[in-house]
Design a protein around this nucleic acid. Sequence first.
DNA 1: GTCTATATCCAGATAGAC
DNA 2: GTCTATCTGGATATAGAC
Lengths: 197, 197
Amino acid sequence: MVTNRKEKEQRREEILAAALDRFAAKGLHATTITEIARTAGISQGLLYHYFRSKEELFTALIGDALVKMNQAASGLESLPVPPDEKIRIAIVELLKTLHEETFSRTVMLIAQANLSEGTPEEAKEVLRRESGEPYAVIARIMAAGQKEGSIFDQESPDVLSMLFWTTIKGLAMQRVTNRESFKVPHPESLLRLFIRR
Amino acid sequence: MVTNRKEKEQRREEILAAALDRFAAKGLHATTITEIARTAGISQGLLYHYFRSKEELFTALIGDALVKMNQAASGLESLPVPPDEKIRIAIVELLKTLHEETFSRTVMLIAQANLSEGTPEEAKEVLRRESGEPYAVIARIMAAGQKEGSIFDQESPDVLSMLFWTTIKGLAMQRVTNRESFKVPHPESLLRLFIRR
DNA sequence: GTCTATATCCAGATAGAC
DNA sequence: GTCTATCTGGATATAGAC
């Protein structure tokens, strides 16, 4: 039973975790409220005590995910190291987190949400507002690296940033859909895309 | 009105194209039969004259897509050029087809179907049977290239093949979700991942 | 706060007229 | 072959007991 405020908050988190699990596996529309409730170990009716609708649940998850991504991105940008080293660190860290179930699921969730049609309007709104930053951060780092000569310069910073993120996204999807057989590449292999040699 | 056999076949194709359009944009479950019918310009009831169910439609699309992919893959393998050149050609061609709406949609469709939960069982069956080949083809080419020294050899052929396809998949998704702003990278940029230098 | 039972709605699928 | 009208099932959301 959940009575005080802290426990209520915790139950909310449990529901969110269950929802992330199911949404990442099946997508928004294929996932039923009943299934989320079952995963969270509660009755279907109770879920409505914590969230008004399935869409609100989805939107909350998207919001959380983007906040975390933006924090990570701005943390990266403020590191006191040269641009190419920032990219190296970013790749190392992202490949590490690929092992964590939660991270891969979050990437999937955002990827799905970006298939804008069929995504709740409020979720799209959040995406529009917040999702540009990680791209912009990497693009700025790439630009700085090109200026000082450490980053590959036959491609614009924008395109490099897009390549960076699409590669990570592709790997995360692979990770989610092929849990058993998935092998993480070495950071150095991916770095070859961006570092000038 | 559709009377003879050829016209019937054509109408089937129209419905398949409409379904691919909608499934790629919204996914299997978020897409309604009504919507597909409207996109194809026919009534909802008529669709059942051509396909038994939404799932059959989906499975047919997956089947078509995999057949085409496998044809392309085996065509690539039999080209009379060295391995690194095969990879080059594959990248050039794939980046070209990225411009075609249909190709990107097809990639999306397969990516979605791979989120196995929520995918119809027959579609999963087809995927299991047929989807390994493109990976295997690229892995074999990578292995041959490593043997003769033209391909990057600090990563196994399997991982290189996975990197190859996840990169393409990531770009296709980007293409579908950001039609307006999407810029295709130069083939040489991607080649850097695989070619030994 | 939590559950069970139920109302409501909507999409998939069918039937039948033309 | 094609359409409109209808049946049916399942999922969201609500109501009400505990």
